[in-house]
């Protein structure tokens, strides 16, 4: 993703992306557009949007600021695979159990 050693412009590009995405999140959080408050797949549409925007921010931080995008493929996999497999798995287990726990009461 660009020539990282010779210039700084890419740093400011990532900064603006992170800033704009955060601003959009805050604006959505304050305005709360009514059509986004409908529930799809277990939670409101607006929450799905927040989560997608957060993952975009996370990808930019890890790939650009932490330079993972420029590391060897093996290192990328070693770092990303445990997180990408274990965290969704844990979320799946805990959130479905949370649902059952509320039903049982």
């Amino acid at each position: 993703m660009g020539n990282h050693s010779n210039s700084n412009w890419w740093i400011w590009k990532v900064f603006w992306i992170l800033l704009i995405v955060t601003a959009v999140e805050v604006a959505l959080g304050i305005i709360k557009p009514p059509f986004m408050m409908e529930v799809y797949f277990g939670t409101k549409l607006i929450n799905h949007i927040f989560i997608i925007l957060t993952l975009i921010k996370a990808a930019y931080i890890v790939m650009e600021f932490m330079h993972l995008g420029q590391e060897k493929k093996g290192l990328k996999l070693v770092i990303l695979l445990p997180a990408l497999i274990l965290i969704p798995y844990m979320l799946f287990i805990l959130l479905t159990e949370g649902l059952y726990a509320s039903i049982m009461i």
Binding site: L75, V78, I79, P82, A83, L86, I87, M90, L91, L94, L95, E97, G98, L99, A101, S102
Partner: peptide, 29 residues
């Protein structure tokens, strides 16, 4: 490498916290 490995474990710790938070929220919606 060691910093990266530490960060993976730390990321799992934090996701454990946040997943537990989600569990409680789903239990008391």
């Amino acid at each position: 490498l060691m910093m990266w490995f530490f960060l993976i474990t730390d990321a799992l710790t934090f996701s454990g916290f946040l997943a537990a938070y989600g569990w409680s929220r789903f239990k008391y919606p």
